[in-house]
């Protein structure tokens, strides 16, 4: 898998460049590396070729939202807010961590330090 590594500051500029070149936004992938650092992958498609941007971030340093460039990213950014507890400042349609999860689950379930598999509030 080819991926171009960028820093969080370059992200919005890189996305704008992608859009100008006619790339279609496919999706984002977030992976928890350890308790506090996360890897974000931005996947784009042009003429059936995938290209990926890769960046590393942590909980304390939010990555700017790319919804101003690609509006379609609002769903996946909200999903990552829900599942990983990251925040994306500038998100066009912010559900504020209620896209998927209700108040029963407040820990981000995909984080490495997430509590037990099954939340205790479930009972």
């Amino acid at each position: 898998m080819r991926a171009e590594t960028i820093t969080p500051d370059q992200l919005v500029g890189a996305c704008a460049r992608m859009k100008a070149e006619g790339f279609r936004f496919v999706t984002m992938t977030c992976t928890a590396m350890d308790e506090n650092s996360f890897e974000l992958l931005y996947h784009f498609d042009k003429n059936l070729e995938l290209s990926t941007l890769r960046l590393t971030t942590s909980k304390d340093s939010p990555v700017h939202s790319i919804t101003a460039v690609y509006f379609a990213a609002f769903l996946v950014e909200n999903e990552i807010q829900d599942l990983f507890g990251l925040r994306f400042p500038g998100l066009a349609l912010d559900y504020n961590r209620t896209l998927y999860l209700d108040e029963e689950i407040r820990d981000a379930p995909f984080c490495k330090n997430a509590a037990a598999e099954k939340n205790t509030a479930a009972e």
Binding site: V26, T27, T29, T31, A32, L41, H43, F71, A72, F74, L75, V76
Partner: peptide, 29 residues
Amino acid sequence: GEVFYYVKADGKKYLERIRIRTPTFANVP
């Protein structure tokens, strides 16, 4: 439409991460 799978593994029995982007997810916007 297009379904997208991303799998990350580190040689263990369990996969480290599996990400599924389904077509409707892309069609909601």
